[in-house]
């Protein structure tokens, strides 16, 4: 729709300027601030002192930082591998189900609406070494040698912290995929069925390709979610022991708001930002190339 040229600024001012101002000042300008703070030593009370790239240089040889970064990247990779297919499969199962459809949908989506802190606390009980169901289940199945002190064994604690995150968010991706599938026209599925294609074939050859856009969307959501991951790890283990179950988000919070190191915290925030953008672009490229 085209409007007379001289009046073009009116809708712009009315419709866009409020959001644009708020958005620019609080997001774009803030990122600039963060970038600047990351070059200073600052405790938020006194004046910032310029230290240049010191914190970034320190990251290169800081073992804790390496561990936290590795945790975050691993989290992204594992979440993508687990949650994307789970969302697709779960969505498809629901899509093809008529009986109890609503009940299943209701139950699968429940964790999404629970507050993150409730879920995290719940899982501290589930993984309790003495009475938690996980160890009990392993004992019962005769796998006692697999029981662990889940929350303090540094070899596993990081994965343990990821479980409530998966538990909580997987339902969201199932429903998003389901919603995408429901807009696939019935004819496509029907004609495939008449051609004698099995359920699995339909899923693989028809649904998955058509869901590409939705799947990419889910991947982007998962990536940004993983990089900023904070509450589950923070509530369950406080990121510990040490930083072994910390993600970048937890590390940033600890440095900034606990230790009062706002400069270093800003530097970590910049790493989170760069990581998110880089991974998102990489994923988008992968999806484009496939086309």
């Amino acid at each position: 729709m085209r409007v007379a040229k001289k009046k073009r600024w009116i809708p712009f001012v009315v419709f866009v300027v409020p959001a644009l101002l708020v958005y620019t000042y609080f997001i774009i300008y803030s990122i600039g601030n963060t970038g600047y703070y990351s070059l200073t030593q600052w405790n938020a009370i006194s004046e910032p002192k310029y230290v240049g790239m010191k914190y970034y240089m320190d990251f290169l040889k800081d073992k804790d930082f390496h561990m936290v970064l590795r945790n975050s990247l691993l989290n992204v990779v594992i979440s993508l591998i687990v949650q994307v297919p789970a969302g697709l499969i779960g969505g498809y199962l629901l899509y093809r189900t008529r009986r109890f459809y609503k009940l299943y949908r209701f139950l699968i989506f429940i964790p999404v609406v629970l507050s993150a802190s409730a879920v995290a606390l719940l899982f501290t009980l589930i993984f309790h070494a003495e009475f938690g169901p996980v160890n009990a289940l392993l004992d019962w199945a005769g796998l006692s040698h697999l029981t662990h002190s889940w929350l303090s064994d540094v070899k596993v604690v990081f994965y343990v912290v990821m479980i409530p995150m998966t538990y909580q968010y997987i339902g969201l991706y199932v429903i998003i995929q389901l919603s995408g599938m429901q807009s696939i026209s019935e004819d496509v599925i029907e004609s495939a069925t008449i051609d004698g294609a099995s359920s699995f074939r339909i899923f693989w050859n028809v649904v998955v390709p058509m869901q590409k856009g939705v799947t990419m969307m889910c991947s982007v959501l998962i990536i940004s979610g993983c990089f900023k991951a904070f509450e589950h790890s923070y509530i369950m283990t406080w990121g510990g022991p040490g930083y072994s179950s910390s993600f970048l988000g937890v590390y940033m919070y600890m440095e900034t708001f606990v230790k009062g190191n706002y400069g270093k915290g800003s530097a970590i925030a910049m790493i989170i930002l760069v990581g998110t953008l880089a991974c998102t672009m990489a994923v988008q490229r992968i999806f484009r190339e496939e086309e």
């Binding site: 993984f127 309790h128 070494a129 003495e130 002190s149 889940w150 929350l151 303090s152 064994d153 022991p241």
Partner: peptide
């Protein structure tokens, strides 16, 4: 110390 030094005895 306990096996679970952080979860059950932390």
């Amino acid at each position: 110390f306990a096996d679970d030094v952080l979860g059950s005895t932390g």
